[in-house]
Nucleic acid binder design. Structure first.
Lengths: 367, 367
DNA sequence: ATGAAAGCGCTAACAA
DNA sequence: TTGTTAGCGCTTTCAT
């Protein structure tokens, strides 16, 4: 009689057709440490020592063990080691959205840094659901020795109450004082200040901000910094975070009479670039455009986008450093805020005397 | 006296300064199944049954167990379960380069699909090193129950000899008959055929192909399909796979007199678009341009790029389906080749009578 | 329906 | 230097 598990019925009478589901943990009939010990005529402890590079093993024995291991294709069981050692050799990353270049950057940086010390990386994506994020974080944490969490929207409160169970972990793109994790974030205000200095240096006095999603902390910070800039006329246009949002905003941009547009991020700025182009507005001759983030795409827009570069990969690498320190019981609980770097490309230029064929050359400018 | 394990000597006399490295697997003083059993006054077996949703437990007992578990913040040890069960609940993905949209797509698709069944995903990146890829694959495989491998450059030979140790695994973007893994790939020839049909339908008879890296299988297939197209004049230009490669090729493109350019991929095509623009050549009025892959960026070039879309996410999702089938001992070892889909956007148009101000209106066209 | 007991494969005191 | 002996925390026959 066939096994009565939910198997799906194949051809009836061929007991050897399928790979015969085993029960034990070992991949195939793969060797265990005991078998190697037996084959080499030593104890399991000795095999363990050899496999872990302990120097206190006689050369002759070590050689015998290695030979036996090789002969048997022995590979230590990761699960068994994890259980005995109390650590998995894996860390995890949870992010809202893997299609976002911001998170892709930290994924790469983190992955590479962790790989250099032989750690594996578990990744999970929450699809922008903050609740899901915390659940995933917990889950991920249980499966690894440490966590890097990018959770831009989960309430501070929640993170604080979860802190203990998530630890050791580090936060990226965000600061949550009192949650028990160091945080690696970006100084948006500084980035905006650089942008503003660049733009005013080019003679621009009236800027229009293409605002990001209202819930976004990055947006709030960038907006606040913009508002705080002295001697500037600022028009704020609700926009979004996607290309199409920026594209749709183009008419309003020319309408408002600003000589430079500051996009919430590079996608929005690129969209604006395209929209402006379609409207016959020349960039940067008629109007300047800036982005934020420096996504890979930004170098290839027409014209290439002036933007503020944030060290995405570096954030990931450093997240690993911090996490490792934490896992090893070192300190390292302080926060750091990365200073972004202005990248001047071709989408910004000097403010033209008569920006565009518009009647209201109003008195907003100060010269 | 302090534990004499290799601890690194810090300040001597402050036993409580650092978090006191424990030895056991449990995160903090977290509860074990034994403690829960004790608290609930039942055996560990019963706790296990309750935690795993066995129905054969008296309601009253189950409730008591659940209460105890909750009170103690009990969370089963993943490592212990893995060891006892012989599986980890994790699968892994190894790719050459996480910054490549092709692999990002499968990462997302695979991750989401696996998450839906509660599996975790381990990812590793080889930085384009084929040798490293196989090492990572082995490594990854040992840490998980199954593997999805994108290894465009590792020799067939190597993959075949590793097959047994990698299994169960599935190959993406590649076919390696006899290696023991089903493969999910893309029908490049069909994609090219669609492209050619589209282009010839618009009157183009002379195409220029911006070739990808010589080692790339995708390039060979696309090129072969192009060569096989009847009634066409084909110019082949060595190019590459990056934006700058395409950009640099622009002069040669106009030089060769073709009325349409077929880029190896979207990056190259975008670069060509930009280069052509700089040379004052209008697209698609003067010349048509096509890409391949449909990366996110392709929608936003100017003009938006006509390209061949390959189902990147779907590849990932299906990879999961196949892998699951394999892990469960079902069949599913057959290969599938995805049919790409032509996406006509604005970078292609009818061949103009007098394409560009060039003297040699040679007799290559047939009408 | 429940419990006792035997592992899963490895590591690390401790003894020798 | 090497082996012995306990576990690490969970699952699962096998009895009851």
């Amino acid at each position: 009689m066939r096994a009565s598990t939910a198997d799906g019925d194949q051809e009836s009478e061929q007991p050897s057709a399928r790979p015969a589901r085993r029960r034990g943990p070992r991949p195939a009939g793969s060797a265990t440490i005991s078998r190697v010990a037996e084959a080499a005529g030593v104890s399991r402890a000795t095999v363990s020592r050899v496999m872990n590079g302990s120097t206190t093993v006689a050369a002759e024995l070590a050689a015998r063990v290695r030979a036996a291991a090789a002969a048997l294709d022995y590979e230590p069981s990761v699960a068994a080691r994890s259980l005995a050692l109390g650590r998995t050799g894996t860390i995890s990353l949870v992010v809202p959205d893997l299609s976002n270049p911001l998170y892709q950057g930290v994924l790469r940086g983190l992955g590479q840094a962790a790989a250099e010390t032989g750690r594996r990386l578990l990744v999970a994506e929450s699809n922008e659901d903050p609740e899901e994020e915390t659940v995933l974080a917990l889950e991920a944490r249980r499966n690894s020795d440490g966590l890097v969490l990018a959770s831009p929207r989960a309430p501070d409160e929640r993170l604080r109450e979860l802190g203990a169970r998530l630890s050791p972990f580090v936060l990226v793109y965000r600061e949550v004082p009192g949650c028990g994790a160091p945080s690696l974030s970006v100084d948006n205000a500084a980035g905006v200040a650089d942008l503003v200095a660049h733009l005013t240096g080019l003679g621009h006095r009236h800027l229009v901000y293409l605002a990001g999603p209202p819930g976004s902390a990055a947006n709030s910070e960038r907006l606040a910094a913009l508002r705080a800039a002295p001697g500037l006329t600022l028009t704020e246009l609700p926009c979004g975070s996607m290309f199409d949002d920026g594209h749709a905003a183009a008419p309003a941009v020319v309408e408002c009479g600003a000589s430079a547009v500051v996009g919430f991020n590079d996608m929005v700025a690129s969209g604006a670039l395209t929209g402006l182009h379609e409207l016959g507005v020349r960039v940067p001759a008629d109007i300047s455009v800036t982005g934020f983030d420096d996504i890979p795409f930004a170098r290839y827009t027409t014209p290439p986008l002036t933007t503020v570069s944030i060290p995405k990969n570096e954030l990931g690498r450093q997240a690993w450093d911090r996490l490792r320190a934490l896992m090893e019981g070192e300190g390292g609980g302080y926060d750091v805020r990365f200073q972004p770097r202005l990248l001047v490309r071709d989408s910004t230029g000097p403010r033209h005397e008569a920006p565009r064929p518009r009647e209201e050359q109003d008195g907003l400018d100060q010269r």
